[in-house]
């Protein structure tokens, strides 16, 4: 079976190896094998495989990774373009901001706009 690869050169992922602590959690949580540790610093090894889920950014204790996290779902993009706000499944596709700490996430949780699609 040919490998499934999405569009080239479109992903918003950025890494700042100089901030990296080398814990490797980002490499562990990435479901697409995008990141690697070289000399205990994070590097983007396979950029086009990134699906912008945001797992690496959320779990980085050093803020060494940044991505405009969101869900790659056309239905969600359409819903958001039409201003629909379902709370069930595919609602809106606003990019998610990096998590600033628990208090921010507690404040943001009830009115969070980013969406999933199942």
């Amino acid at each position: 079976m040919p490998a499934l690869r999405y569009l080239k050169d479109v992903v918003s992922l950025k890494a700042a190896p100089e901030l990296c602590l080398g814990c490797g959690l980002c490499v562990e949580v990435c479901p697409q094998g995008v990141l690697a540790l070289v000399d205990k610093r994070v590097v983007v090894a396979d950029r086009d495989a990134c699906m912008e889920c945001g797992a690496c950014m959320t779990n980085c204790p050093a803020e060494a990774l940044w991505v405009e996290a969101g869900v790659g779902c056309a239905q969600a993009v359409l819903n958001s373009a039409f201003g629909r706000k379902g709370n069930a499944c595919c609602c809106v596709a606003e990019p998610r901001a990096p998590q600033q700490g628990l208090q921010t996430s507690l404040d943001a949780a009830p009115r969070r706009k980013s969406s999933g699609c199942c």
Binding site: R5, Y6, L7, V11, M51, E52, E68, G72
Partner: peptide, 10 residues
């Protein structure tokens, strides 16, 4: 949306 590898930017 159902697939496992698409990015929002893409």
């Amino acid at each position: 949306g159902a697939s496992t590898y698409t990015s929002l930017s893409g």
